[in-house]
Design a protein around this nucleic acid. Structure first.
Lengths: 232, 232
DNA sequence: ACCTGAACACCGTTCAAGT
DNA sequence: ACCTGAACACCGTTCAAGT
């Protein structure tokens, strides 16, 4: 609204890739994915749209760098110790929750991660922090890659979908009435075609996204333990 | 390149929402998500960009309708019977693979599904076809919604990420050399920080995406069976 | 080396005007 | 009721020109 105010306030330091990425994250968080514009961003940085291209190749690279920064921060922030010597399962839950919360706080990260994922800098980070625990759970070496990949895919995919759903709702709307609306639609479906969905509609009403996400992680871990029981 | 050729060929029937959605799917499949433009689409349909708005509210609704059409077709196409009387597990695998293949063939569906998912027409379809099998596996009624949701989230999330990876590669590039390149990068990481990722790099080299996806489904099913053993 | 800002090609969407 | 196509506001990106 008043670009002048911002324009004079900032711009003591020179432009840098890091400052650009930080500003991009700020814009993405406040204005959403559609709000990240080179014009809006350059206004934030008190410069012209062309200046950004000196430090960043294009919008895709900028989104990738912003995503990587958020994921790195989420994985670096060690969660408060719940146990003095956490089990691999507890560590995996902690990593999963850290990612869930980060994606919940920055929904655009979810879209980005499940739409590009592999190869980028982010992937080794994720693989490493979950893979070590998979190894510690006694999964045979030959299955390390498969099991870890699948686990990471669940974590990212589920977190992304949750964030997207939360996004649709918006921060102001009432979650309970929203869920109730959806439940009503489900319960009104054709009994012939949708017997299960009709029954399950009511269960959706009060559910907690975080709990459901963790239940999925636990189901995965239970599957791993069932397939490769710990040598007791 | 030669819009005239197309323009005179079509346009015997009137425009309709269905024809627009079909054309949108064709454009998305050939030109990718970025290729779907109201101008490109209207050229395909031998009409003006404004005409589409009579049948479709906006681009978001069009993408949603296209996604729903693809998912509905994937779920409707009954996979070839592998067993005369398939178990719930086999049915779930079949549904999961049908979705995996559909998303692999139409990568834009993955992005769309994991970025909007809930509430749309598509969700009840997915919930219903997997939920019935979850019920048949003996999961207690109180857990139906959680277990089914989590399973669907894995299927959609993993399929979307796989499709995105395949997309990055492109249809012409050699998959083996690409995987080899990524493996090399992983194997060159700092041994202090990335011991696991370095070891696992080689396992990624020859892996099959479909097999890995199915391994994830099986891990889930194993977890369900472990938690709620069938009353034998 | 780094920044400026006008310019280019393109996009989603609207809407007066037609049939 | 349905379609046309020009017009609007906006976007990512480029690039000659400046410092």
């Amino acid at each position: 609204m008043s670009p002048q105010a911002r324009r004079s306030a900032r711009r003591t330091e020179a432009l840098s890739r890091e400052r650009i990425v930080d500003a991009a994250i700020a814009v993405l968080d406040t204005a959403g994915e559609g709000g990240l514009t080179f014009r809006a961003l350059s206004e934030h940085l008190a410069t012209g749209p062309g200046a950004i291209y000196w430090h960043v190749a294009n919008k895709g690279e900028l989104l990738g760098a912003a995503t990587d920064a958020v994921v790195a921060a989420a994985l670096a922030a060690t969660p408060p110790r719940t146990a003095p010597d956490p089990s691999p399962q507890e560590r995996i839950r902690a990593v999963a929750l850290a990612l869930f919360d980060a994606i919940d706080a920055h929904p655009w990260v979810g879209v980005q991660l499940s739409a590009s994922a592999w190869q980028v800098t982010t992937t080794p980070r994720l693989l490493e922090s979950t893979g070590r625990q998979v190894r510690a759970m006694g999964v045979p070496r030959a299955e390390w890659f498969t099991v870890t990949s699948v686990l990471v895919q669940y974590i990212l995919g589920a977190a992304a979908q949750n964030a997207a759903n939360a996004q649709v709702l918006g921060p102001d709307a009432d979650r309970d009435t929203y869920l109730d609306d959806v439940a009503r639609v489900w319960e009104a479906l054709d009994p012939e075609d949708y017997p299960f969905t009709r029954v399950v509609g009511d269960q959706m009403r009060g559910h907690d996204d975080r709990e459901q996400f963790l239940a999925g992680v636990d189901l995965f871990l239970a599957g791993i333990t069932a397939r490769w029981p710990p040598a007791s």
